[in-house]
Simulated assay, not measured.
Amino acid sequence: REAESATRRGVWLSGSERTIITGCSSMDVIMPNSINALNGTTIKIPCTFTSCYKIDPNMFVMNWTYQETLNDTEEMIMAYHKKRGMVPLRSDRFGERVMFAGNLDKNDLSITLSNVQIEDEGIYNCNVRNPPDRITGQHGIQLNVVTEPLSFSPLHFIAIGASVGGALALLILSMLVVKCLRRHRKKELISEEKMEEEEKLDAEVVAEEGNKHTD
Score class of each variant (00 low, 15 high):
R1P: 01
N39S: 14
E75W: 02
W64V: 06
I118Q: 14
K200N: 03
Y124V: 02
F100N: 10
M175H: 03
I123Q: 01
P132Y: 08
I135Y: 06
D215T: 09
I35M: 13
C52G: 12
W12V: 04
M62K: 02
S163N: 06
F49K: 02
K194P: 02
S174T: 10
H156S: 06
P88C: 05
R183D: 11
R18D: 11
I160L: 15
I35A: 11
V146H: 04
P149A: 05
R1L: 04
K212V: 13
E119A: 15
E188L: 12
N127F: 13
Y80Q: 05
F49R: 03
E199K: 08
S163F: 05
V177L: 10
R84N: 11
N33H: 02
L170V: 04
M99T: 09
T112M: 03
M99Q: 09
K179M: 11
E121F: 11
C126A: 05
D202S: 07
Y53D: 15
Y80N: 11
H81A: 09
E75G: 01
E192R: 12
I43H: 05
F100R: 07
G122W: 12
M59I: 04
I160Y: 11
I190V: 15
V61N: 15
R8P: 03
I141P: 01
Y124I: 02
T41N: 15
D202N: 03
A6R: 07
Y80R: 05
G210W: 00
L176C: 13
S163R: 09
S5E: 12
D120C: 09
V145A: 00
Y80S: 12
E198Y: 04
I77L: 02
M62A: 12
M78Q: 07
L70G: 00
T136F: 01
S114I: 03
N125R: 02
H213A: 07
E193F: 12
N127H: 13
I141R: 00
